[in-house]
Computed example of a mutant assay.
Amino acid sequence: MSQTRIIVFAKAPLPGQVKTRLIPALGPEGAARLARKMLLSTLERSLAAGLGPVELCMSPGPTDPAWQGLPLPPGLTLSDQGDGNLGERMARAAERGLAQAPRVLLTGTDCPALTPARLRAAAEQLHRHDMVIHPALDGGYVLLGLTRFSPRLFADIPWSTAQVAPLTLSRIDELGWSLHRAEPLSDIDEPGDLDRLSAHWCSS
């Protein structure tokens, strides 16, 4: 069994409910359009990596009308993030994923720089390390890869702060697991981040 399972976390791209920190720059509709493009691009890149199953872990769940009309690519596995804070939802997905595959890559939809080549490189590092992380420039992370599970990695983390990656790294040290730290990448959360995108991303 050599597959790597990619689990993509995403909210339904509804105006006023996604990319809220970008609303001052793009408006609710523009922020939702960007979220939709980034979601679909992330899924296409994840499938193009050719590593194994790609799971879209959805909020709300896949049967909710919020997802109607979204042209999801074929070949995905769909799941419900369920209740709880982000750490609790990620922990459930990671534990479930590792019951189905020897390696799991967890990611969101905010990093266009997470190319198929980078996804394949992260999966390759999991042949030699327990974990791999792509930190984000803002102090979070855009990808976390695992071959082992501990709820400690996701508990009591102040999500959406600059402490996410440092605390996660300290937890990995506590567990004594081997880690490959990949290059930091940009995610797109704040109006200033839009300068890193080409014009077509924010067009209608």
Rank of each mutant, 00 (worst) to 15 (best):
M1G: 15
Q3H: 14
T4K: 07
V8T: 12
F9H: 15
A10K: 04
A12Y: 11
L14F: 07
Q17T: 11
T20A: 09
L22V: 01
L22G: 02
L22C: 03
L26I: 04
P28N: 10
A31N: 03
A32T: 02
L39Q: 09
S46F: 00
A48T: 11
A49G: 04
P53S: 08
V54Y: 10
L56F: 13
L56H: 13
P60A: 08
P60E: 07
T63D: 15
T63Y: 10
D64S: 14
D64L: 09
A66I: 05
L72E: 03
L76P: 02
L78C: 10
S79G: 11
S79P: 09
S79C: 10
D80G: 07
N85C: 03
L86V: 08
G87K: 05
R89N: 00
M90K: 11
R92M: 04
R92S: 09
E95W: 11
R96D: 11
R96G: 10
G97M: 03
L98M: 11
Q100K: 09
A101E: 09
A101S: 15
P102A: 08
R103H: 13
R103I: 11
L105C: 13
L105M: 12
T107I: 14
D110S: 14
D110H: 09
C111M: 10
C111S: 14
C111R: 08
T115P: 06
A117F: 02
A117D: 10
R118G: 07
A121T: 09
E124F: 02
H129M: 12
D130M: 00
V132A: 14
I133K: 05
P135W: 07
A136L: 04
A136D: 15
L137K: 11
D138L: 11
G139P: 12
G140Q: 07
Y141E: 05
G145Y: 10
G145M: 10
L146R: 08
R148Q: 15
S150H: 05
T161E: 03
Q163K: 13
A165Q: 07
A165K: 01
A165W: 04
P166K: 00
L167A: 00
R171V: 05
I172P: 01
L175Y: 10
L175F: 12
L175V: 10
G176C: 01
S178C: 06
S178H: 06
R181C: 13
E183P: 03
E183Y: 03
D187E: 12
L194K: 02
R196Y: 00
R196I: 00
R196L: 08
S198T: 14
S198M: 04
W201I: 01
S203W: 12
S203P: 00
S203R: 14
